[in-house]
Structures are given as structure tokens and as C-alpha cells.
Computed example of a mutant assay.
Amino acid sequence: MKAEVCLFIAMLTQTAPLAGETPPPAYYEPAQFFRTQIQPILEKRCYKCHSHEYEGEGELFLDSKIGWQTGGENGPAVKPGDLKNSLLIQAIRHHDSDSAMPPKKKLPPIEIALLETWVLLGAPDPRTTPPKP
């Protein structure tokens, strides 16, 4: 299964390079995948409400590995390898309007696919130190 996921990642992240640019790698090492594909989504879409800088709504902090592992009021946000039981995935899919995140507008399909891929890969996250409040 990991080979299929890696191929999927390669397909998601491949874009035609501009003149003079180096093409993106066909395979991302897990920590690099997190830093280049997942962390920017979390920073752009989630940190406004779920980071130490903004006091973490629902006691959920996505700006650290320990934050999503511990989770908020409803428990761990991500269960590595398990899409069905990962609260983050349930929220971004907008199946339940009460827990839909972000609340006003659903993420673009590519961002949902990348977050799902991250969870399927076991949610690699190289961040080892929690951010300072």
C-alpha cells in the first residue's frame, strides 16, 4: 500500500516546472512531505484558531505534533493510518456541519487529498518541540 500512496503523492505534487526551474522530486521523504505539503496547509487554514499563538479553540493545537496527538476536547485529532477515525479528516470533509472545519468554507480538494494522504502515511511530523505559548 505504501508504494501506491507514494505514487499518489508524486502525482499530487507534480507540476510542470517554469523555465529555468528544477522540477519537484518524484518522491518526498516523510518529513519533507510534512514540511512542504502539510505544514503550509495547517499554517494557512488552521493556525488562526488552533495554535498556541491564538490559544487553541476547543483546546486543539495543530502547531505541534504533541498538539494533534493529544487533541482537544474530543480527543486526538489524528489517528495515524486511520482516515475513518481521524477527527481532523472528518472535520475537513464537512460531513457534519457542527464539526466542519474550516467552518465557513471547505478546503480545496487537493488540500483534503494531501491531508488524507498524510494520515494514510502514518501522519509523519518531524516537529519534536512544542511551540512557545
Results as ranks from 00 to 15, higher is better:
residue 1 M to H: 07
residue 5 V to A: 00
residue 7 L to I: 08
residue 7 L to Y: 06
residue 7 L to A: 14
residue 9 I to W: 02
residue 10 A to K: 09
residue 11 M to Q: 13
residue 14 Q to M: 06
residue 15 T to R: 14
residue 16 A to W: 04
residue 17 P to E: 03
residue 17 P to N: 01
residue 18 L to E: 11
residue 18 L to W: 06
residue 19 A to Q: 05
residue 21 E to V: 00
residue 21 E to C: 02
residue 22 T to V: 03
residue 22 T to G: 00
residue 24 P to F: 01
residue 25 P to T: 04
residue 26 A to G: 04
residue 26 A to E: 09
residue 27 Y to C: 12
residue 27 Y to T: 04
residue 29 E to M: 12
residue 30 P to Y: 13
residue 31 A to S: 15
residue 32 Q to T: 15
residue 32 Q to W: 11
residue 33 F to Y: 15
residue 35 R to D: 15
residue 36 T to W: 05
residue 37 Q to G: 06
residue 37 Q to P: 05
residue 41 I to R: 13
residue 42 L to E: 08
residue 42 L to G: 05
residue 44 K to M: 09
residue 45 R to S: 13
residue 46 C to K: 05
residue 46 C to H: 12
residue 46 C to E: 03
residue 47 Y to N: 12
residue 53 E to R: 15
residue 59 E to S: 13
residue 61 F to C: 02
residue 62 L to P: 05
residue 64 S to D: 10
residue 65 K to H: 11
residue 66 I to E: 13
residue 68 W to A: 02
residue 69 Q to L: 15
residue 70 T to I: 02
residue 70 T to F: 01
residue 73 E to P: 00
residue 74 N to V: 07
residue 74 N to L: 13
residue 76 P to L: 01
residue 76 P to W: 07
residue 84 K to R: 13
residue 85 N to W: 01
residue 85 N to F: 01
residue 86 S to Y: 07
residue 87 L to W: 00
residue 88 L to V: 07
residue 89 I to V: 14
residue 89 I to W: 05
residue 90 Q to S: 06
residue 91 A to T: 00
residue 93 R to E: 15
residue 95 H to E: 12
residue 97 S to E: 14
residue 102 P to H: 13
residue 103 P to C: 01
residue 104 K to N: 14
residue 110 I to A: 15
residue 110 I to N: 10
residue 110 I to F: 04
residue 114 L to H: 07
residue 114 L to P: 01
residue 115 L to V: 10
residue 115 L to H: 06
residue 116 E to A: 08
residue 118 W to N: 08
residue 119 V to T: 12
residue 120 L to W: 04
residue 122 G to C: 10
residue 123 A to N: 02
residue 125 D to T: 14
residue 125 D to Q: 10
residue 129 T to F: 07
residue 130 P to D: 12
residue 130 P to W: 04
residue 132 K to S: 08
residue 132 K to M: 03
